[in-house]
Design a protein around this nucleic acid. Structure first.
Lengths: 171, 171
DNA sequence: TATTGTTATACTCTATAACTATA
DNA sequence: TATAGTTATAGAGTATAACAATA
């Protein structure tokens, strides 16, 4: 079995020599111990970095967060979607989706319409101005991603996404 | 210039055929639009997945979060560290580190001792029981990482970390 | 003047439970 | 009974500003 050939323990044995530490703002040298060998650590750091970059580019011009932009994209791709389906797709609780939808509707980006088939549920879709705003947001988002991943080749970027998709399991 | 050869726009042109959608819990088919081509989306999903796995393994036995465990590792690797240095290293605000240190000290994992050189600052270090607990936590953490990345080969795992480190810029 | 630790405040996210109206 | 949308609540995390003691 190929994967059992190197366990975490084997990987991190004698790791001290490889983790000399890093200089922080104050100029003091701080060691990070095992952390540089920990995937979760790098995921967290990268997430923080990309969120910050998004905020300063896409967010600054369009007043949007990655989460809300993701919602808008799913709404665009599935006109008439019910709130509960949106919640399932984005893996957030039904109760949490309410203020998200309120926010987006309050900004005139989407509308809630009563479902013709089920009196309990609402159909969600983009407004015209929502579609226009989303077009701009997506342009900025793609530019943001290009800038953020400029340090990678196209092939590396593809592979990174492929590895992440395998880890979180699809889609 | 190799990297300019494929922009986000080129990458996502005609992407519709590749994003048929995915089945969600309710059985309905939902399309995710551009999201499967977006790095930030996969980072977020992976982060959620690894956090959940951590909580159910390391967190369940040792009542710890990834963030707190990271703090403990940096404290272990730098005995006598000042709170402000820890805050800098972990890139959180000084004010935010206070309740973290309070928590860890309240559980007897670390101690705050007055610095001999600077009456304003405290030196932080692990207690004996903190060191014992941390040893166990690290064992569980490495096992958790092995399990979570079992779908990757050792080489793929190494490359994933390398790509992430380049994106967030070091350490 | 600047830095260390601290407190207070506010705002976002998240998770949970409960309620109503429909199915 | 189960589901859709909603509300209320509590906890974690984050960001900002201000303060006293010390450098």
């Amino acid at each position: 079995m190929k994967r059992a050939a190197e366990t975490a323990e084997a990987r991190t044995a004698g790791v001290d020599s490889r983790t000399a530490g890093a200089q922080i703002r104050s100029g003091q040298r701080v060691s990070f111990g095992l952390l540089p060998q920990v995937l979760g650590y790098h995921l967290r750091r990268t997430q923080v970095a990309i969120f910050r970059h998004f905020s300063r580019t896409v967010g600054a011009e369009m007043d949007i967060t990655p989460g809300l932009l993701g919602m808008l994209q799913v709404i665009e791709a599935n006109p008439g979607l019910a709130q509960s389906r949106l919640a399932e797709a984005m893996e957030v609780d039904r109760s949490a989706i309410v203020k998200v939808v309120d926010q987006l509707a309050g900004r005139g980006l989407i509308v809630r319409e009563p479902s013709p088939h089920d009196k309990r549920s609402y159909s969600i879709r983009l407004t015209d101005s929502g579609a226009t705003a989303l077009r701009r947001m997506k342009t900025l988002m793609l530019r943001h991603e290009d800038e953020f991943t400029a340090v990678l080749t196209a092939e590396e970027r593809r592979q990174l996404i492929e590895l992440l998709a395998r880890l979180h399991g699809g889609r």
